[in-house]
C-alpha cells in the first residue's frame, strides 16, 4: 500500500518557493539531490538483484469454498505465488493474490492495523490476525484457512453471528445508578482501577479466542473467553458500584459461564491484543467464590 513520492527533484523546487527564496545554498542542495538520486538508483538496482537471486515469491495455499458456485461447493485449496516484499503481511499477500490473480478470493479486512478485528484467520494452524502476521515469520507454504469452529460462509469468511450473540449476552454496557450531581462532572476513577480494566477494554471482537477454545467447540452455549472478558471489564470497573457487581457475577456464574473454563490458556495464547483472558476468567471465578461466601 505504500508509495514512493515520484518526481522528487521536481517537487523539491516547488517547496523552496514556500520556505525560502533562491539562495547560494541552492546549488549545494541540487548537488546533494543529484547524489541522493544516484544513491537511490543504485539501491533500487541492488534490491532488484537481490530479489531475483533470493526466493522471491511466497507460496500460499488458501482454503476456497462457495456454496453457490459450481466447482467451489466442494472445499479445496488454491495455490498462489505472490512476489515477496519486505514487511509483507498475510493480509498483503492475500490482497495481492486477489487483485492480481483471482478477484473472487474472499476475506474480511478493513483497517490493516489490527484494530477493526475483521481478519482473524487460521494461518499455518494458528488463529492470527492476517494484517499483523509477517510472512517472514511463517514456514512455507503458508496455509490460510477460515477460523475453525465457525460456520464458513465463503472462502475465509465465517459466520460471526454466534460470536456476536455471546458478546451481547453479558449485558455488555455500562450500568450505574450513581452519577455525580453536576451535569458536566465526570465520575471519578482512580488510576489503579483504570489500569485494572485497561487490558480487558482492548478487545477488538476478532473471535480468535473463541475459535481456539476447546470448551466453546464442545458447548455451543458457553459464553466463551471474549464475552467473559467483556463481563470482567464491567465487573471490575469500580464506577459501576457494588450492586451492579453482584449482578455481573450472577451473569458469569450461569451454567455456561466461567466454571466451564478449564484454564487451557489457548485463548490467551492466540489473542492478538495480548489480553490475559484466562487470568481474567480465573479472577472472576475467585470473585464469584468470595461473593458466594459472603452470603453464607
Amino acid at each position: 500500500m505504500s508509495t514512493q513520492i515520484p518526481k522528487q527533484t521536481e517537487e523539491s523546487t516547488e517547496t523552496e518557493a514556500e520556505t525560502q527564496p533562491a539562495s547560494k545554498g541552492e546549488e549545494r542542495r541540487a548537488e546533494k539531490r543529484r547524489r541522493a538520486a544516484e544513491r537511490r538508483e543504485q539501491r533500487q538496482e541492488e534490491e532488484a538483484e537481490k530479489a531475483a537471486a533470493d526466493e522471491s515469491t511466497v507460496e500460499l495455499k488458501v482454503f476456497r469454498y462457495d456454496p453457490q458456485v459450481e466447482g467451489k461447493q466442494e472445499p479445496r485449496f488454491d495455490t498462489f505465488h505472490v512476489p515477496f516484499t519486505k514487511g509483507m503481511t498475510v493480509l498483503d499477500a492475500l490482497m495481492y493474490a486477489r487483485d492480481t490473480y483471482d478477484s473472487s478470493l474472499t476475506f474480511r479486512h478493513s483497517c490493516r492495523q489490527a484494530v477493526c478485528g475483521s481478519d482473524a484467520m487460521f494461518v499455518n494452524g494458528g488463529q492470527k490476525l492476517a494484517c499483523k502476521t509477517q510472512i517472514s515469520d511463517l514456514e512455507e507454504p503458508v496455509r490460510v484457512e477460515p477460523l475453525p469452529h465457525a460456520e464458513v460462509t465463503k472462502d475465509l469468511v465465517v459466520d460471526m453471528e454466534h460470536f456476536y450473540e455471546q458478546m451481547e449476552a453479558v449485558e455488555p454496557y455500562f450500568q450505574t445508578d450513581e452519577y455525580p450531581d453536576g451535569e458536566l462532572e465526570e465520575q471519578r476513577q482512580d488510576r489503579a482501577n483504570r489500569e485494572k480494566i485497561k487490558m480487558s477494554t482492548r478487545c477488538i471482537w476478532c473471535g480468535a479466542c473463541m475459535s481456539s477454545c476447546n470448551i466453546a467447540a464442545g458447548d455451543n452455549e458457553y459464553l466463551g473467553p471474549a464475552a467473559i472478558n467483556k463481563a470482567y471489564r464491567f465487573a471490575m470497573d469500580e464506577r459501576e458500584g457494588e450492586e451492579m457487581k453482584q449482578k455481573r457475577l450472577e451473569i458469569i456464574e450461569q451454567e455456561h459461564g466461567v466454571w466451564r473454563c478449564q484454564t487451557q490458556f489457548s485463548c490467551t495464547e492466540v489473542c492478538p491484543k495480548d489480553i490475559p483472558l484466562t487470568e481474567h476468567i480465573q479472577e472472576l471465578k475467585r470473585e464469584a467464590v468470595k461473593n458466594n461466601l459472603k452470603f453464607w
Partner: peptide
C-alpha cells in the same frame, strides 16, 4: 465528552480521578 464518560468510556485519568 462527559456523556461518554457516563456511558463508561475508560478515559486516561489524573491522580485525582478526573479525566
Amino acid at each position: 465528552v462527559i456523556r461518554l464518560e457516563h456511558w463508561g468510556m475508560p478515559f486516561s485519568r489524573e491522580d485525582d480521578g478526573r479525566v
